Simulated assay, not measured.
Amino acid sequence: MPQARLLQPTDNLEIAETLARAFQNESGWSYVIPDPKLRARRLAGAFHLFLRDEHRKGAVYGTDGVEAVTLWRGPGQARDSMFDTARMIIPFVQRLRFSILRGLEVANLIEKHLPTEPFWYLHYAGCDPAFQGKGFGGAAIQAGLERADQDGLPAYLETADEHNIALYQRFGFAVKHSWQVPEGPQFWGMQRPGKTRH
């Protein structure tokens, strides 16, 4: 079985490339950057920007060869502060250009649906398509869930691809709500209850 480990900022280049391949055909990013060629060119740069904060705000787990990655934000870190948003907006505009408007639309809707109680947030989970179905993604997800369980806290995520629902249900997540981006994809918010500490 593949094993997952805590990844470090020195792994960010590989992490961004893996996530870019994983999200190339994902519904949310396909809405934000509709042109597939443009999406292929810009996704790795966008994920590299996300990774500036992810290690600090939570934990990044991945398999040994970075075939699969999960970005987790810890309790109280799911929502970006005004300072973080202001600091990141210019680099994101440079990466995404006009796609930033759709990106902000999706990000605002996601934030409105985040839980209010403390939780661990599975911000992104992705597996290189060449390694899907081989347990790599599951290992990266499980590593983050074990971290959430140490705190006895629930875990939350959202997905814009309906076929992912069954995958996350196998890890104990259940659909909490769903919402539609106007003229865009549907999202499902899923939550896994916290484990009681002994």
Rank of each mutant, 00 (worst) to 15 (best):
F47Q: 03
F47E: 04
F47I: 04
F47W: 11
F47A: 03
H48V: 01
H48R: 13
H48W: 11
L49W: 13
L49R: 12
F50V: 07
F50E: 09
F50W: 14
F50K: 10
F50T: 05
L51H: 00
R52N: 10
R52P: 05
R52L: 13
R52A: 09
D53L: 12
D53C: 01
D53W: 12
D53E: 14
E54I: 04
H55D: 03
H55K: 00
H55P: 08
H55N: 09
H55L: 04
H55A: 04
R56W: 09
R56P: 02
R56S: 13
R56M: 04
R56L: 12
R56C: 06
K57A: 06
G58I: 02
G58N: 01
G58S: 06
A59F: 11
A59P: 05
A59I: 01
A59C: 09
V60C: 05
V60S: 04
V60H: 08
V60K: 08
V60Q: 06
V60T: 06
V60P: 00
V60W: 07
Y61N: 01
Y61V: 06
G62R: 07
G62W: 09
G62Y: 07
G62C: 02
T63S: 11
T63I: 03
D64L: 10
D64M: 05
D64S: 08
D64T: 08
D64Y: 11
G65Y: 10
G65N: 13
G65Q: 14
G65E: 15
V66H: 10
V66E: 03
E67F: 10
A68G: 06
A68Y: 11
V69Q: 01
V69F: 02
T70W: 10
T70D: 04
L71G: 03
L71F: 12
W72D: 01
W72S: 00
W72L: 01
R73K: 15
G74T: 07
G74I: 03
G74V: 05
G74R: 04
G74N: 05
P75F: 00
P75A: 03
P75T: 03
G76R: 01
G76L: 00
Q77P: 02
Q77K: 10
Q77D: 00
Q77Y: 05
Q77I: 01
R79P: 07
R79I: 13
R79Y: 08
R79V: 14
R79G: 09
R79L: 13
D80M: 10
D80C: 06
D80Y: 12
D80L: 12
S81T: 15
S81L: 02
S81R: 07
S81N: 07
M82W: 15
M82F: 15
M82Y: 14
M82R: 14
M82I: 13
M82A: 15
